[in-house]
């Protein structure tokens, strides 16, 4: 199991969770933050501090956002476990499906 960041983070990226994470497993994409699922230790420190209420325990992700479980994992394909966001720095990219999301205010 792991914690997962979902849609409310997109284009918010508050980063309160990054400060809170004891194992530094929350990585910064261009439009949202991602939790490395293998590095996450399930401690739950991030979830209550998110102002956007974007973080959920995997079992509790609302139905409309369950695809974010895969999105958080897949963004690390090819990267593996970088061993800490501080050392690694920003990802410089997003999951393709996040990238493809329309920006707020751009109209549907």
């Amino acid at each position: 199991m792991t914690y997962v960041i979902a849609q409310p983070c997109v284009d918010v990226r508050d980063r309160a969770c990054v400060d809170e994470c004891p194992v530094d497993c929350i990585y910064q994409g261009e439009r949202m933050l991602y939790i490395q699922p293998d590095e996450c230790v399930d401690c739950g420190a991030c979830e209550p501090v998110c102002p956007a209420e974007a973080i959920f325990y995997a079992d509790d992700v609302p139905d409309e956002w369950t695809d974010y479980i895969a999105i958080n994992a897949e963004v690390f394909d090819g990267l593996g476990q970088p061993g800490g966001a501080g050392n690694h720095g920003p990802l410089g990219a997003d999951h393709p499906r996040i990238q493809a999301l329309e920006t707020e205010g751009a109209g549907a």
């Binding site: 004891p22 194992v23 399930d42 979830e47």
Partner: peptide, 16 residues
């Protein structure tokens, strides 16, 4: 169910 406080270092050791 694991019952340590959110952010506790024990989670990291357990996972490891």
């Amino acid at each position: 169910e694991v019952r340590w406080c959110p952010g506790c270092g024990d989670y990291a050791v357990l996972k490891a």
